[in-house]
Design a protein around this nucleic acid. Structure first.
Lengths: 347, 347
DNA sequence: TTGTAAGCGTTATCAG
DNA sequence: CTGATAACGCTTACAA
């Protein structure tokens, strides 16, 4: 008995039902589904109509098996900032919505020696259509090569151009920080503390470099006593803030490499009885939710995270039936300073 | 030519390779993979050894097709609180890690009339192993019935017992709020404002009821002028805070139904030149990141969101090869008051 | 431009 | 307890 001669009407329609109903072979139906160019317009219409009537939807599992490729987009990351991850998810999902692709989330441990192997196992098993890599692991070239060798598309998000346009979405952190710190200098600050991001993060380096460039441009020396390092988390910002405020003379302003650490520094200031911004100006980076929600509202640098994630998703979908446009997406995205209430002239 | 006689050694090993190498049929290998109880121990060991040697991993796509069921857990939600969603993801992923299951994230629009149909289409297409439903849509019984009719397992997370144990993970919001507000009363507050959550949220109702019960238990009347409603977002908390502070006489304390709104109320107080907690005490709910990061650190109610998500994931995995234990997971989780610095006696 | 046959890698059925 | 054979629903050769 032929496996294709299933009785119709029960359960969801399959490609066989459509083929029978429209009087063509299932391969032809397959061609319609996949927008094959070599198809008689009439045939296509006939099949398309039946598909619409029946509400037929191709079975993704069967397609995945035959194509050796799943209709899934992976978000693989080891990002310490929850808000960032969430923003990226939001952007990706907004593009994936309405397509046949779904989002699968895969955190990894960048500290682990087996990280690359873990990702390899994941990719080999799931055969995703493509993945989005978040910083800091997006900076790992081994991972990019791995994807390549496995035939898995990828887009890296990062704070510098690390790859070709089709595989990269970047922000200009360095320039953005330069602007932010120049803003502090313009307000009259001369002793400005820096809370760096963790070692090994490209974004940390870019932001630190931007800080240095701004000082240099103003002819200011970088005082080593005013430079501390955090790990992008609140607690580290708190510790770094305490340390900076212990310097003599005290800095009149602090640039923290992300908002969470800025919030930590703000806590340190409050705990020390200091008023922000009267006694201490603070600028953060990211413009995550917390920036606007703490008091005083934090002046910070906003990078268009959701837009960047959307671009990443579109790049992954480029060339597929679900591509929403033919125009290539931007690769470099500009950040901007969001002025709120945490900056004032030094007294 | 038999499709099973592929030449070995190229590409990833398949079930056929394992069958050939261990001298059994592929069905037997399948039985080993699926922990079939009716298997000769020797046979099993032999096959298991080969599997380990070759590093064979069953192909999820093929399994999905044959089983008509994917090895995926879905997180379907329309939750307005980013931190909550993230916490849930974290909990789910920590349980899924090391299993053969992956997490797929699916936001839906609870306002849309087609919401249930959208979820139906999603479930029919993806054939997930199971899904986790977050509030407020977890309160929707139609959705639960839908899952049932589609043979998709589910676990609902919520603030009240809405389903049987195997399908429910709940917190005791009402009691927790009662405790929190009693704490305010014990500190000497008599005029306490309430910022309710949005209509239609069970959690909003539970928390409001807990508030009312605490007042009643202390013999205090509920002044309608001291009750406002927000939508669980910061801005709504800001507006609600302004409104409450305009009441005469002013409340000396506010309970906000979540942290974001509490942060908004805090902003309103600062903007009005009030000191927190000296002039106004505030308690929030959730203990999301912002609670500890704003100034003053917010006294709030912590519900064990990550633990609850873990329990949800384990309930979904119960009975599978990946079940990590036989003991059933708890259904009701207790919240606790986290005392920080936003509460003081009224002056 | 369309159809036929043979997979994709697994599990279910049912007989031994 | 084990194995042959037929699905699962789709796509890729290769013909026609």
């Amino acid at each position: 008995m032929d496996s294709d001669s299933d009785s119709p009407g029960q359960g969801k329609p399959t490609i066989n039902d459509i083929a029978r109903l429209s009087g063509v072979s299932k391969k032809t139906v397959s061609r319609v589904i996949n927008r094959s160019p070599l198809l008689n317009a009439e045939t296509r219409k006939r099949v398309d109509d039946i598909i619409r009537e029946t509400g037929y939807v191709p079975n993704p599992q069967a397609r995945a098996l035959a194509l050796r490729r799943n209709f899934l987009i992976g978000l693989v990351h080891d990002n310490p900032n929850a808000q960032t991850v969430l923003g990226v998810q939001q952007g990706l999902l907004s593009v994936l919505k309405g397509t046949e692709y779904e989002l699968i989330v895969r955190p990894v441990d960048r500290g682990s020696l087996s990280m690359v192997d873990d990702v390899r196992a994941f990719l080999e098993r799931q055969r995703l259509h493509g993945i989005v890599l978040l910083p800091p692991i997006s900076e790992n070239d081994d991972l990019a090569r791995l994807c390549d060798s496995l035939g898995c598309r990828y887009v890296r998000m990062g704070s510098a151009l690390l790859d070709v346009d089709e595989r990269m979405v970047a922000s200009n952190d360095r320039e953005a920080v330069r602007t932010a710190v120049a803003h502090l200098i313009a307000a009259g600050h001369r002793r400005i503390g820096l809370i760096e991001g963790p070692e090994g993060f490209r974004s940390a380096r870019e932001r630190r470099d931007g800080f240095g460039e701004a000082l240099a441009a103003a002819g200011l020396a970088l005082d080593p006593a005013l430079v501390t390092r955090g790990n992008y988390r609140f607690e580290s910002g708190l510790a770094a803030g305490r340390q900076l405020l212990a310097a003599a003379p005290r800095p009149t302003a602090i640039f923290a490499s992300n908002d969470e650490m800025a919030a930590g520094a703000l806590h340190a200031a409050r705990a020390a009885g200091l008023d922000v911004p009267a006694d201490l100006s603070i600028i953060g980076f990211d413009d995550t939710a917390i920036a606007a929600h703490i008091w005083p509202p934090l002046t910070t640098v906003r990078w268009p995270i959701i837009e960047m994630a959307k671009a990443a998703a579109r790049k992954l979908l480029a060339g597929t039936v679900d591509a929403q446009t033919n125009a290539p997406d931007a690769t470099l995205f500009l950040s901007q300073l969001i002025e709120r209430a945490s900056v004032a002239p030094p007294r």
